[in-house]
Design a protein around this nucleic acid. Structure first.
Lengths: 132, 132
DNA sequence: ATCCTTAATAAGAATAATTTCTATTAAGAA
DNA sequence: TTCTTAATAGAAATTATTCTTATTAAGGAT
């Protein structure tokens, strides 16, 4: 019994996400693949990104004032987003605290807990242009 | 010179958000006020929620697979969301770590840093119904 | 108290983000 | 090679949010 098929589309989408550090949106993933697979549909990109995120092969990151972003880097790290320009970066200089997840599981009635932390602030460039 | 006007709409929207612990979406805030102010427009709800969040009178929370939610409770606390049913709860039993923001500021070139952590897991009810 | 300026509104159109629908294609088991 | 059906392309539909425009009303000035 077949459960999940290995389509070319899925493979290409996965490697596109894994091959960049730009945290692309679905739209951007679609654009990245346009040359290689010109009639890949955006719906297929969304469907596969959703599935890949569900099975944990990529991460999905929900950000205020931005479409969801996807990250092929599964090593524990954080993200920081500029509230002015939307610039979105990795932040590796701090650990992902898995203990928090265990703590939540112990204190709440939720299981399989993980967390997503997004830092928001003003980036260097935007600071320069600020007035008042 | 007038900078910001105190409209009835703004007051009602603010107190609606402050008066609930349900973390309503804009749509839900609009519905909550429907009786009191039947021709309050959804656009006005969005505009005011955005403004109130900007000036820090309420919090905006971006969640995967959900429209943005708003929280009138400014005391430091976290949120946890069920990945199956979307149930969204407060989690108070752990501090908001402001040191993280200061650490990010020190290690990155971002300023005015804050962060939003959302925990995702499977809630008690959804656990019961899980198969396989 | 009335006038005046313009910020904020209602209503709806427009846009953006994402999902759903349907006929067709192609994985991969038999 | 055949067969079943998961996955696709393409487009329509839906959801979330912002924008547009004529109108209203907040609140400072007269």
């Amino acid at each position: 019994m077949v459960k999940e098929r290995n389509t070319k589309q899925k493979a290409v989408i996965l490697s596109a996400v894994q091959g960049t550090k730009t945290h692309p949106t679905a739209e951007q993933v679609h654009a990245m693949i346009a040359d290689e697979m010109p009639n890949l549909s955006l719906g297929t990109v969304y469907r596969n990104l959703n599935r890949l995120a569900e099975i944990g092969k990529i991460r999905r990151i929900s950000v205020t004032n931005s479409p969801d972003r996807f990250d092929g880097d599964l090593t524990p790290h954080h993200h920081i987003c500029c509230t002015q320009c939307g610039r979105f970066c990795d932040f590796f200089d701090m650990e992902y605290n898995e203990n928090l997840d265990r703590l939540i599981e112990a204190k709440s009635k939720f299981s399989s807990v993980r967390h997503e932390t997004v830092f928001y602030g003003k980036c260097e460039d935007c600071k320069k242009f600020e007035m008042n």
